[in-house]
């Protein structure tokens, strides 16, 4: 019931996004779309995914969209009608194929579906004895599927390299004067008082909450990805309120550029250490004498690596976009 209502709202927002030609409005509605998706994930009991979607989709990606819009401009050109036809055919065909494929999928929530038969029972039954953390998602993500998560962090790092090569982060000092704000400067100063006070009140709790999510990921929803994004959005808030330069004085981009690599290397180092102690790559059980403690330390260390990489990549990308658009 709640699902249906949320899906209807989701469809409505998608329709509105497609129909609007003003990109800024589309970005706004995209953030709304993300948080609706997060709500649906939550109704489906996928708390960790909902967490990621709420943090990434609603917060960070909105800001990145805006930063990109600052470079490319706000209006999209109307497409001539005859240019629509070929893409329309491709999209419809793909949609039909996907619909046809979905006929073969098991019914929603079917207990006999392959995904519930293969490894899921082992995760659900044995993870408490084998890995330890009460949050099974964390133990699957960080321990059973440690290679996959390593790959994901590698993807995030690669994206960072790509953005760095495209935009040239941190190397170019801005020589162009920033555009003068539309309002009179005096008024702008007076007006920002409320926002500044509120931001001062909020930034520190955001950062602390990020650390809580980081270290509490074993017991509740959360983990390195979410914590990194929340930490980064705290820094974004500072940069938005006080301007990019104070934020860059706080976190010099030149030094910040090392941190994505540090996080990834920390992750890899845990794997190497477990190899040196006679186990497989990323087998945390051999890290210390007690296997469960080893799993716990290993998960904490790699979550820290993930968090560092994600936060540093997000902040770096934000800085390079904002410098570019000045």
């Amino acid at each position: 019931m709640i699902n249906m209502v949320l899906l209807m709202l989701l469809l409505a927002s998608v329709y509105a996004i497609i129909r609007l030609d003003r990109l800024l409005t589309a970005v706004l509605l995209t953030s709304l779309f993300s948080v609706l998706v997060a709500s649906i994930f939550m109704v489906l009991d996928a708390v960790d995914v909902a967490f990621t979607e709420a943090a990434v989709g609603a917060g960070v990606s909105t800001i990145f969209f805006l930063a990109a819009l600052a470079i490319v401009g706000r209006q999209c050109k109307p497409t001539p009608r005859r240019k629509i036809i070929a893409p329309l055919i491709v999209v419809s065909a793909t949609g039909c194929v996907l619909l046809y494929a979905s006929l073969d999928m098991p019914r929603f929530g079917e207990p006999l579906a392959p995904v519930h038969q293969h490894v899921a029972p082992r995760y659900l039954n044995d993870s408490a004895a084998e890995v330890g953390p009460p949050n099974i998602v964390t133990s699957v993500l960080a321990s059973y599927r440690g290679y996959d998560t390593f790959g994901e962090v590698g993807v995030v790092f690669t994206a960072f390299i790509g953005v760095l090569m495209l935009l040239g982060a941190g190397t170019r000092r801005t020589s162009i004067e920033p555009p003068t704000p539309t309002g009179a400067p005096k008024e702008s100063m007076r007006k920002k008082v409320v926002l500044k006070e509120v931001a001062d009140l909020v930034i520190a709790p955001v950062l602390i909450f990020a650390l809580y999510v980081q270290w509490h990921g074993d017991f509740g929803p959360g983990g390195g990805f979410q914590a990194g994004v929340i930490f980064a959005s705290g820094i974004f808030l500072y940069a938005l309120i006080y301007g990019i330069e104070p934020a860059q004085r706080l976190l010099p981009p030149r030094r910040l550029a090392y941190f994505p690599a540090i996080g990834l290397l920390l992750y890899a180092a845990v794997g190497i250490i477990s190899m040196l102690r006679g186990g497989n790559f990323l087998n945390y059980s051999v890290l210390v004498n007690d296997p469960l403690h080893g799993q716990h330390y290993g998960i904490l260390a790699i979550e820290l690596g993930v968090g560092i990489t994600v936060a540093a990549v997000m902040i770096n990308i934000f800085f390079s976009f904002s410098e570019r658009s000045l």
């Binding site: 309002g183 007006k191 509120v198 009140l201």
Partner: peptide, 17 residues
């Protein structure tokens, strides 16, 4: 309470300006 009301305040002031 704090953040949402502050952003509504900022919005209203932006509209006013």
């Amino acid at each position: 309470l704090v953040t949402s009301l502050a952003s509504i305040h900022a919005l209203a002031q932006t509209v006013n300006v």
